[in-house]
Every structure is written in structure tokens, then in C-alpha cells.
Nucleic acid binder design. Sequence first.
DNA 1: CAACCGGCCTGGA
DNA 2: CTCCAGGCCGGTT
Length: 101
Amino acid sequence: MVPTDFLQNVYSRLGEVPFGKVTTYKRLAMAVKTKAYRSVGNAMRSNKDLTNIKCFKVVKSDGSLGGYALGAREKIRRLKAEGIEVKDGKIVDFKKKLFTF
DNA sequence: CAACCGGCCTGGA
DNA sequence: CTCCAGGCCGGTT
């Protein structure tokens, strides 16, 4: 299937997030001029290209992890690989690690 | 057309 | 102030 404009937009924006930083579903949604936070998550889920699309860099607005296709465990591991610590299911120093578009 | 969703926010206990 | 439940928006399948 061919990705929609929305999806391409989301993926593109996600690619702007620098190493060591994260973003939220909401912020991402705002970046693509939409209020469909849920759809963004849905988009991540439907994404197959995990190698090129770092969906693990997207978390909830309150700093908690949210979901991940490969499991929360894996998500945490990946984030840690970028120097982002996760404690008790939440990002440490979330506000600092948060990237704003 | 109907159902699903990796969320967010607000209100009540 | 913290915790739980319900409601709600928008886009995909």
C-alpha cells in the first residue's frame, strides 16, 4: 500500500528528532497540523519500517513510554542506547530530552 | 460505512 | 495533591 500524506508527514517530522531526544504523539500531531494524536500512534503501529523510522522516540505527553510494536522492554533498551534513561516506565528528565519542532 | 488505536484531557473520588 | 474513569478527536484499515 502507498503511504498517505499524513503518514509521510509524520515520518518525515519524526526524522527531524535528533539523537538523544524524544517527542510526544501530541507534539508530532501538532507538527503535522492535526489534532489526531491517536492516529499518530496508530500510524506508528502500522509502520513496518522500524529500521528507518524510529518510533521508539515517540512517547506520551506525561513522559511515560506509551506502546511499542516490539514491546516496552525493547523500547526502553533502544532509548537507553540514545542516552535516555527510563525509570519506572517514565523518561528521566523528560522535559530536557523533549524535542520541540 | 463501521471499528480500531502505541493518546490526551477533564472531572470526580 | 494523587488515582481512576469516561469522553473525545481524527486518520487508517
